[in-house]
Design a protein around this nucleic acid. Structure first.
Lengths: 203, 203
DNA sequence: CGCCACTGTTACCGATCGGTAACAACCCCA
DNA sequence: TGGGGTTGTTACCGATCGGTAACAGTGGCG
């Protein structure tokens, strides 16, 4: 808790030009966790890949679990930045927002480097309730459900909860399918399916 | 390769009344893999939980990876037995078959012990292409896609490939959602969403 | 200059990982 | 009464896991 940042304002540290060790480690960890999975990546591998060693790792992070939680919070923040960025150009037009979301989702998930959703993958790997990352995952997915339902309600759909849930299932299913199918998988049909669903709900 | 079964026909061994050590180990492994994940369960834990020891484990299985592959093949077989059992009563009525499938899927996935789809979870945990279980997962998911598309075609739907993929995304999304939501999660809306989709496709 | 925060290095800890050798007991069947 | 196949037991292997102690350098800033 107290050894994450010893002194100095972190914003002040970022002003300095070259990257702090902590940032290099964190960036490396994010990439390795996403690419190979959380359990598959050890602390030693992270530190080594970041060009430093395990001791420097533990000078910046309290534990691996804590780093994992921070990784998940990072993924969560980035997701909502992405979401808000997609939605912004169509303010007040919930139907157009949803379509833009699914179009972007298909594009993103079909990209070569995609390994689905890091939060969803963590939901599979992290089973222990005490793990500090578990709460982050649950909160993230709950918020997704809330937003999809709100979107469905805003477009005046019949049975907005059902439509919101259905849209969420479509998106989550795409994340999962990406792990077994190359680019041309079922994800490609997500936008079309979302449109059909919204049409059918009178939105 | 040669130490999985040393002698005797395995079918002959099953004729004998009490459970072989191999079967106890395998059954235990299946439960632990599904409940806690593949990477989270060690060989020692499996053997111990099965009331034996690591040495007896390696007398029955060539390696942990090989056991994992066998676990996945087991899950695959069971899944199709389940599928065929659901579909059988509605032969020749693809629309009714799909509805029965989704109703059963919702029930199964909402049950208390459910941890989603073991194959899908393995798709998250197993990244290495060389792992003997990876091919099993890919084949399984490909077959699911094939069957859903065939089902959509059989019900004379417009754009059967799109509908088939959409149905698959709904189902897979439910598996994923189950890991973060308790019983009343978005999975509950899967059957309704599937109906709406099929209606919209004129099936 | 000297101080101090940051980093690198090395060695170590106990625990667990997947996997193996050697030997003693057992039980069924010939 | 034998075996032969199946088990249990113990000890061990090298490697890696997450995590720590102690010390040597280095850079910037007062």
């Amino acid at each position: 808790m107290m050894n994450t940042v010893k002194s100095e304002d972190p914003t002040l540290a970022e002003q300095a030009g070259r990257p702090r060790v902590r940032d290099r480690i964190f960036e490396t960890a994010c990439e390795l966790f996403y690419r190979h999975g959380i359990r598959a990546v050890g602390v030693d591998a992270i530190a080594c890949e970041a060009g430093t060693n395990k001791m420097s790792f533990y000078r910046s992070f309290a534990s691996k679990d804590e780093l994992v939680a921070e990784y998940l919070r990072f993924k969560d923040r980035n997701f909502w930045i992405w979401w808000d960025g997609i939605v912004a150009p169509h303010q007040g037009q919930p139907r157009a927002q949803a379509e833009a979301l699914f179009e972007a989702h298909v594009n993103k998930t079909c990209s070569k480097e995609s390994r689905g959703c890091g939060l969803a993958n963590a939901a599979v790997e992290i089973v222990e309730d005490e793990h500090p990352g578990r709460a982050v995952v649950i909160a993230h997915k709950s918020e997704i459900r809330r937003r999809f339902r709100a979107l469905a309600k805003a477009m005046q759909a019949r049975e907005p909860e059902q439509l919101g849930d259905a849209l969420m299932l479509l998106m989550e299913g795409g994340y999962l399918a990406r792990l077994t199918f190359p680019k041309g998988g079922p994800v490609s049909s997500a936008l079309h399916a979302a449109r059909v669903l919204m049409d059918a709900h009178g939105a």
